[in-house]
């Protein structure tokens, strides 16, 4: 296929995260791609590096009352409330369909308690076909006054290390960005046995209708995603990449291939596309093609040459 010229210089885009081999670094961000089928009408989703599904819990979850979303300048605040069909329904009905796609399926999951995290991980691990688990620690902890798991170093350590013992699948810990020092949280995840970390999840946010003086979301607060968060996400991913040895999956506001390149250059091995899927159902594929074209133009033959290739001329100005 294609011209012989391009065939010869077709760059290598494959990367590896622990034992997981991906044909390219472009993944979907959990909660923005449903269970894959929603977007398979638009393009061949098998072309993606991996599909990350909507966050799952032991039992189905209804989620928050509407309105659940509000648009802010270049951003989207959502308070879906982790609505999901539960792991039983997922494993019986959705996973068989997902496994028809020729790309690794990464299952995002969460729990209300540490035990629920463990049980969910155990059940998911017994099913053939799941390529990796991504644990979402940006959810509230029932046993700690509904404080977010991923914002408390002690709890983060406990939940990661215990889930680690419960699964043999590659384990990705999806960090909460709503912390003071993201690098130290990433280290905790690494020390707890994570095979990789992914970031950023959404930033806690709020919007008010000035006419009615009421919050625009029924849940009052929600998580901000989209282009508005990208520069903060790039900074956090850069800090984490410097702090840990395990692979980092970068995301937050990626809309174009150039956005994706920023994350790769600061050191993330893979990237995930979230809100951009809503703006353009073909976003992931266009980003993938854009990265490939950029590599050809820049004469980069292997994506690993690009990953972490950030050049800093005045290192001393950074006080780390």
């Amino acid at each position: 296929m294609g011209s012989g010229f391009l065939d010869v210089i077709k760059p290598n885009l494959s990367i590896q995260i622990a034992t997981l081999k991906l044909k390219n670094p472009v993944m979907t961000a959990s909660g923005t791609f449903g269970y894959g089928e929603e977007y398979s009408e638009f393009f061949d989703v098998s072309r993606l590096g991996a599909i990350v599904v909507k966050g799952l819990s032991m039992k189905p979850k209804k989620g928050n009352p509407p309105p659940r979303i509000v648009e802010t300048p270049a951003g989207l605040i959502n308070s879906i409330g982790l609505q999901n069909i539960g792991i039983d329904h997922f494993l019986n009905e959705k996973l068989p369909l997902l496994l028809k796609f020729k790309t690794p399926i990464i299952v995002n999951f969460f729990g209300d308690t540490v035990d629920e995290f463990i049980k969910t991980a155990e059940i998911l691990s017994t099913h053939k076909g799941i390529a990796a688990l991504e644990m979402n620690v940006s959810c509230p902890n029932k046993e700690a006054g509904w404080r977010i798991f991923g914002t408390d170093p002690k709890i983060l350590k406990e939940v990661v290390s215990r889930v680690r013992s419960a699964t043999n699948l590659p384990l990705i810990v999806k960090l909460s960005p709503n912390v003071g020092d993201i690098a130290s949280m990433a280290k905790i995840a690494q020390d707890g046995g994570a095979d990789a970390v992914s970031l950023v999840n959404t930033f806690l946010a709020m919007a008010v209708d000035v006419k009615t003086r009421r919050p625009l979301l029924a849940n009052i607060v929600g998580g901000l995603s989209g282009p508005a968060i990208k520069p903060i996400a790039v900074r956090m991913v850069w800090e984490v990449c410097k702090a840990v040895n395990i692979p980092v999956i970068g995301m937050g506001g990626i809309v174009t291939y150039k956005d994706a390149l920023e994350f790769l250059i600061v050191g993330s091995k893979a990237i995930a596309v979230g809100t951009a899927n809503f703006l353009n159902p073909f976003a992931t594929i266009e980003i993938l093609e854009g990265i490939e074209k950029y590599m050809v133009e820049e004469g980069i033959t292997d994506i690993n040459q690009l990953i972490g290739s950030l050049v800093i001329d005045y290192e001393r100005t950074y006080n780390n």
Binding site: R68, N78, I80
Partner: peptide
């Protein structure tokens, strides 16, 4: 209010 339009975001 809608975001994705295809049943993916549950918004």
């Amino acid at each position: 209010y809608m975001a994705c339009g295809v049943g993916a975001c549950l918004g």
